[in-house]
């Protein structure tokens, strides 16, 4: 019993991190139709800024919001200045994000050096709560709460608000949306910023959970892609479900069959690609 409760909880908390990672990427992909290789860099910068802000202010939540906003602002600038210049050319846009990723990687190494950091966060992050005989680390609870809240807010935004309807329209047919008098370029910029914001949040939460160090940007990128591919490109709900499925699969895979842990995350992706190339929730 303890095994199942513990492992399920672990899986869900890992899923929370996966959702934060993949959610932003899927938003960006949906609206802009580009594969944003720099997504890992947003995560990396978010994490480093989070560590720096936490060291300066001592307030984790301030560091979280401040860092994510800074990354979002950076994302908006990148979109406006660089990606806009090669608009409509997917391949060049993707290569551009690749270049940005390499540049950011080196810049971070220059600024923060090569030693790994870990964001300690408030003292209670290191503690656990006991509930009915089971132990739940508070950091993991926080991760689940953060991902849950962000998902609900984003879902509400996308499904229930006018701006969300515009985003959905742009995902389905950007040209037609523009013809209806909606300013798609501004929409794209906002969504890119939002995606970067999510990556920044993931970076701060992630650096509390698993530390932050050079090269992590390209290490976490495949995880973000797995979530996006399994969930369906552009689908927020898809990313949420995919993160949950993958987090639990990965966790139980590792716990029950440690020898195959290389496959637990990526085998489901291959299977989904083979049978549903658009992902669980994606539309062709």
């Amino acid at each position: 019993m303890e095994f199942w409760v513990n492992q399920t909880f672990n899986g869900i908390s890992y899923a929370a991190l996966l959702f934060l990672l993949g959610g932003g990427l899927t938003l960006i992909f949906g609206v802009m139709k580009i594969v944003n290789i720099a997504h890992g860099s947003f995560y990396l910068v978010g994490g480093y800024l989070g560590v720096a802000l936490f060291a300066a202010t001592g307030n984790f939540y301030l560091a979280l919001v401040g860092s994510a906003l800074a990354v979002a602002a950076g994302g908006v600038v990148l979109e406006r200045v660089f990606l806009r210049a090669v608009e409509g050319d997917d391949l060049r846009q993707m290569l551009l994000t690749m270049g940005i990723a390499l540049f950011v990687q080196d810049a971070c190494l220059l600024v923060w050096g090569g030693d790994p950091f870990s964001l300690r966060g408030p003292a209670y992050f290191a503690q656990s709560v006991k509930l009915g005989g089971f132990t739940f680390p508070i950091l993991r609870l926080f991760m689940i709460a953060a991902a849950g809240v962000l998902f609900v807010v984003l879902w509400w935004f996308e499904e229930k608000t006018r701006a969300g309807a515009m985003v959905r329209a742009a995902i389905d047919n950007a040209e037609m949306t523009e013809a209806l008098g909606i300013n798609v370029p501004i929409l794209k910029m906002a969504v890119f910023g939002l995606g970067a914001f999510l990556a920044g949040v993931a970076g701060v939460v992630g650096s509390a959970f698993m530390g932050i160090y050079p090269g992590l940007d390209f290490e976490i990128l495949p995880y973000a892609f797995v979530v996006v591919i399994v969930g369906g490109m552009g689908s927020l709900s898809g990313a949420f479900v995919a993160a949950l499925v993958l987090g639990l699969l990965d966790n139980f895979g590792k716990a029950l069959f440690p020898e195959i842990s290389y496959f637990t995350l990526f085998a489901p992706m291959a299977i989904v690609l083979a049978f549903r190339p658009t992902g669980l929730f994606g539309r062709a």
């Binding site: 095994f3 890992y14 966790n251 716990a255 842990s261």
Partner: peptide, 17 residues
């Protein structure tokens, strides 16, 4: 004996077992 992949992101499942 638990063999963890290099750069394991989450050791939770291993530690719990």
């Amino acid at each position: 004996k638990i063999w963890a992949p290099v750069n394991t992101a989450d050791f939770g499942p291993y530690v719990a077992s």
